[in-house]
């Protein structure tokens, strides 16, 4: 009787969770099961169930395709650069910002440096293509110093750095939020004690501020492990061109071209599966250590 009552009380809860759970099962777990297509010679007309089975054929092809090696290397390289520079820039800017005393000035600066985060890469791509064009504002500025016009967006060696710089431009402001909060959480008495001991601003920053931010920095770095193969799909798709494929083509853009544009469904799905598995492993490791070392929990 008691259990019957309990179950009856739970019925509305099941009704509530049903619509979101159903959508989750179809559009998140559906594609996970759909990954079987990487082991099939997938034909959309036959579907996941009836396409002929080919085992590891596409994984073997994937390993010998020079394209795939190139995009994996590019992804790793670009994503690592971004993790390092994004984090470094956000830490430095947060420390400098916390030193601003004038409240109005600080607020205004924050408002301005946060906003690029909210613009889509379609818009930013349009803006930067104009900005970095041969007759764009950057080249005209460099021209003042006698520098010959540079084709920034079709220069292969430069392209990864353009990606890093434009991303740092876009997200550093927003990235300071968590670090600023960490700085605000530092006990002011520590600064006073350091001052009494004769520490100037730089020594206080080094011995008080940075150690105070340590947990946040470690957690942010651990959590960014999961994005080591995520070089920034939206950004690259809106900035790259065939002339920078050698350095700028990454896993996600390649999967898009191979899978959607050229209909090599199984091969693209195999590469996608490789990317998802690596990300899962690294995210799990990252979360595990963030939990162990800093007691970080999502819920």
């Amino acid at each position: 009787m008691k259990i019957g009552h309990r179950t009856r009380r739970e019925i509305p809860l099941y009704l509530m969770i049903l619509p979101p759970l159903l959508l989750l099962l179809v559009y998140s777990y559906g594609p996970m099961l759909g990954l079987v297509m990487a082991f099939q010679r997938f034909d959309p007309a036959l579907g996941f169930l009836k396409s002929p089975w080919v085992g590891l054929y596409y994984f073997k092809r994937m390993l010998i395709l020079p394209d795939v090696q190139r995009v994996v290397t590019n992804s790793l390289y670009i994503a690592s650069l971004k993790i390092v520079f994004d984090t470094l820039a956000a830490i430095v800017v947060a420390i400098l910002l916390s030193d601003i005393r004038n409240r109005h000035f600080k607020k205004t600066v924050q408002t301005i440096i946060y906003y690029p985060y909210f613009l889509s890469w379609v818009i930013l791509g349009g803006i930067f293509k104009d900005f970095l064009a041969v007759d764009g504002i950057v080249n005209r500025f460099l021209g003042v110093f006698g520098v010959a016009p540079i084709r920034f967006l079709s220069n292969a060696p430069l392209f990864p750095w353009i990606l890093v710089i434009t991303e740092v431009w876009q997200i550093t402001g927003f990235g300071t939020i968590l670090f600023l909060a960490a700085i605000m959480g530092i006990n002011p008495q520590l600064y006073e004690a350091a001052s009494l001991d004769g520490a100037g601003y730089f020594r206080r920053t080094w011995h008080v501020t940075l150690p105070g931010m340590r947990t946040t920095i470690v957690v942010m770095l651990l959590l960014s492990l999961g994005s080591i193969l995520n070089a920034g799909f939206d950004q690259i798709l809106n900035l790259y061109s065939t002339s920078v494929y050698s350095t700028g083509d990454v896993i996600d853009t390649w999967v898009y071209r191979a899978g959607i544009q050229q209909a090599q469904y199984s091969l693209a799905a195999a590469v996608g599966l490789f990317r998802s598995v690596v990300s899962l492993v690294l995210i799990s490791i990252g979360y595990y250590f963030a939990y162990k070392k800093a007691d970080y929990r999502v819920f």
Binding site: M32, G226, A269, L273, R275, S279
Partner: peptide, 15 residues
């Protein structure tokens, strides 16, 4: 589902 995803191509097929 937040940690692992089927990726672009299987998602496209499910849609």
């Amino acid at each position: 589902a937040m940690l692992f995803s089927g990726g672009m191509i299987p998602t496209y097929m499910v849609v």
